[in-house]
Amino acid sequence: MLVADSSAAVAPGCAYRAGDFLLTTPGGVLVADGPGVALDLPAARTALARPDAVVVGALPFQPDVPASLMVPSAVRRRPPLTLSTAPAGGRWTVRHDGSAAYVEAVRRALTSIAAGVVDKVVLARCMDLVADDPVDVGRLVETLSARDPHGYTFATGAGSRTLVGTSPELLVSRRGDRVTSNPLAGSRPRGADPATDGRNATQLLRSAKDRREHAMVVTAVADALAPLCRDLTVPADPELLPTRSMWHLSTRVTGTVRDRGTTALDLAMALHPTPAVCGTPAAAARALIGELEPFDRGCYTGAVGWTDHRGDGEWVVAIRCGEVDGTEVRLFAGAGVVAGSVPEAELAETTAKFATLLGALGLEERQ
């Protein structure tokens, strides 16, 4: 496995090609050359036992859907990208946005919550777009990375499509013995002016409903990491995390891995899916999602990342993303539904979350 740690290792821009894996982080960029050796999850774990092996790709939301993982032919690293925030552009037609069905699904979910079936369920909707010309995935990745430089921009093959997005949420990272997870739950849109923006942030931080939703996620993350990590640090109160389009409640959970044989991929599988993208109890929430969502999530709300033979790696939650297939793009956005949720407010939250991809495609005016 060739791993180069220099800016000369990657051409200017993101250098993304169809079939590659790319992940940009605040600390740098990882590009893995594809098509590599395709793997399912058991084979990926076996591959990591080989010297110098690196596994990259995406995990699906549903456990019965195959993972999109590979051992690439080469891995290249470079410093963070410095690129234009200009949108990818093009002429677009919106075929479907799922808004009416989404409001009805939230109403049905609230009935299930009142009946005690679930405490929380995360419901998503999709928006289908078609462009006049094939989408330039490399240009889209560059725009997304420039617009949210503190996020995690990714592009990777997911079946016949390319999964592209910018996630604000670190599922888990492992560096040596150190483990970090940064769950997010509870959101408000960014405001167009400083007064509105500040008011939205303050309302989020003070919202009992959002803090309750956030606490569910943090508790689940800590419980999942506890058997695998010691010295867990779980802050008592969340902080605000801003992205270009949203405010989020954020808690950074850290610890030390108990067994060096526990890889970043193992940690990701132990955590996935968190209540931030599924709900609680997880099995009941997953079943309800399958009943209420009229589409297949694929790798949306799964995880995207990498793990090497030492067990180090980084996996991010696959949100604020879409699937690109030639001239067609399917965008995804979801919101957590708990007791007290208002269907129209959850619809508005998903609309605000679409802004990440729509803006990068030159469609911000739709927001």
Rank of each mutant, 00 (worst) to 15 (best):
V106W: 02
V135A: 12
D136T: 02
V137P: 09
P134L: 03
V106Q: 13
V118P: 05
L110H: 09
I113T: 04
M127C: 14
V117A: 15
A115P: 05
S112D: 15
V117E: 15
R125I: 04
E104G: 00
S112C: 14
V103K: 06
G116R: 09
D132K: 04
V118N: 11
T111P: 02
A109R: 10
C126N: 15
A114M: 14
V122R: 11
A124Y: 02
M127R: 15
A124E: 08
T111K: 08
A115C: 10
D133M: 08
R125Q: 07
V130M: 13
D132M: 04
S112Q: 13
V137C: 12
A105Y: 03
M127A: 09
L123Y: 13
D133L: 07
C126H: 14
M127F: 11
D128A: 14
M127T: 06
Y102T: 00
D136R: 02
M127V: 12
L123E: 08
D136H: 10
V130R: 14
D132E: 13
V137A: 07
A124N: 13
A115S: 12
D119L: 13
A105P: 03
Y102I: 00
R108P: 03
G116W: 12
P134V: 01
V118S: 06
L123K: 13
A109S: 04
V106N: 08
R125L: 09
G116V: 09
V103L: 10
V106A: 05
R107D: 13
A131M: 01
A124P: 06
L129E: 11
R108L: 15
A124R: 13
K120H: 05
D119W: 05
L123T: 07
V135G: 08
D119I: 01
A114N: 15
V122A: 12
R108F: 05
D132L: 06
V122Y: 07
L110Q: 10
A105D: 07
V121L: 04
A109I: 05
A124L: 09
V130D: 10
T111H: 08
A105I: 07
V121M: 07
E104Q: 12
A114T: 08
L110Y: 13
